[in-house]
């Protein structure tokens, strides 16, 4: 079942139909009620409720001490967040767009990621860095990037990307409760793209566990974030042409659920990796290498990457840049004909 399919459904008891964005707010609200160490801060997150509205209502409910605006400084937001975390809080820092995170890169890579290791476990950094990422909103260079690979390449960071409203809530709650720093990257293209049932109250989706978004037997697509929905549409099309497609939604890039990846690829013998970041050294390259290293003997064809271009993110030609249904279908075919 895709997220869009539930659009017109009534929610079952104990669930509520919401957008991915609403589910993120619900996760923060739930944890702020559960744990008074949880604080939310960033640019415009207070009265305005965030430029996308992810923190709407939080300052009203929890006050300015626990949901507050910051000066316009990503470095300061993350640096102060690290200080709060090692003091014993559970900070959630919002970076308005992932494209603007680079001033904080040093604080994330050199400090948050290494705090536990470098202090021999004395100091830790249980902090969530939330940020909308990815293309599909006509945001040009600076409101569209997919920078997940930088963070996946940094030991000490967990990297989480939801693709459905229910996962967004469950994974965010798990991230807030996690003892380590988590990059929680939100595919803004699907913030309001259809709704889905989300459990009310307590809902935890453990980190490090992928999910089979669609079962199939001929070819595996590995993907995450907004690309899951593109791949689901492509799978429908492929099915008509007689290709049975399995889709693995990774949900957590670090730590990766290797088992679900390898089991699926061993079953189908074919793998397409879909991601919207620049192709070279993207996360899909890691997945391709993993498959080559651990189950090459099961492969019936080459591992194919369908990805963004090795260019800065374009404005007008965004539709050409982004992997779409046609390119995914072409990728699937390449695993059969080579």
């Amino acid at each position: 079942m895709t997220a869009t399919e539930t659009k017109t459904q009534e929610a079952r008891p104990g669930f509520k139909v919401m957008t991915l964005l609403e589910a993120i707010t619900d996760a923060m609200r739930t944890e702020m009620r559960n744990d008074d160490r949880v604080v939310v801060f960033g640019e415009d997150v207070g009265k305005k409720g965030g430029v996308f509205g992810a923190t709407l209502g939080l300052q009203d409910e929890f006050g300015e001490q626990r949901c507050f605006d910051t000066p316009l400084s990503e470095c300061g937001i993350i640096g102060a967040g690290v200080g709060m975390a090692l003091y014993g809080m559970r900070p959630i820092a919002e970076i308005q767009f992932l494209d603007f995170i680079y001033p904080a890169f040093d604080q994330i890579v050199s400090e948050a990621a290494k705090m536990r290791y470098r202090s021999g476990g004395e100091y830790t950094c249980p902090m969530v860095i939330r940020s909308p990422y990815g293309g599909g909103i006509r945001g040009g260079h600076y409101h569209s990037q997919s920078a997940e690979a930088y963070f996946c390449h940094t030991p000490g960071l967990k990297v989480v990307i939801p693709s459905t409203p229910a996962d967004a809530k469950g994974l965010l709650i798990a991230s807030i409760r996690d003892e380590d720093p988590v990059m929680f990257l939100e595919p803004k293209r699907i913030y309001r793209h259809g709704k889905g049932e989300v459990p009310l109250g307590e809902h935890v989706v453990p980190l490090g566990k992928g999910r089979i978004a669609r079962e199939g037997k001929d070819v595996t697509i590995l993907c995450y974030g907004a690309m899951v929905h593109v791949c689901e549409q492509a799978a429908e099309e492929a099915e008509k042409a007689g290709r049975s497609v399995e889709i693995v939604d990774l949900r957590t890039l670090v730590p990766l659920d290797e088992q679900i990846v390898l089991e699926s690829v061993k079953k189908t013998g074919r793998a397409v990796v879909v991601y919207e970041a620049p192709k070279t050294c993207g996360y899909g390259a890691e997945l391709s290498a993993l498959i080559a290293e651990k189950c090459i003997e099961h492969l019936e064809g080459p591992v194919v990457r369908v990805a963004g271009f090795d260019t800065p993110f374009p404005y007008t030609l965004e539709p050409l840049y982004m992997p779409d249904v046609k390119r995914v279908l072409a990728g699937i075919e390449k695993t059969f004909v080579w």
Binding site: G79, M89, Q107
Partner: peptide, 24 residues
């Protein structure tokens, strides 16, 4: 606190810890 070798990063941490102390 156990510092890194990066110059100045601990300043923000000190401030963040102080903000936390105040909130708490």
């Amino acid at each position: 606190y156990g510092m890194s070798s990066v110059i100045g990063t601990q300043i923000s941490h000190a401030v963040g810890a102080a903000m936390a102390a105040r909130i708490r």
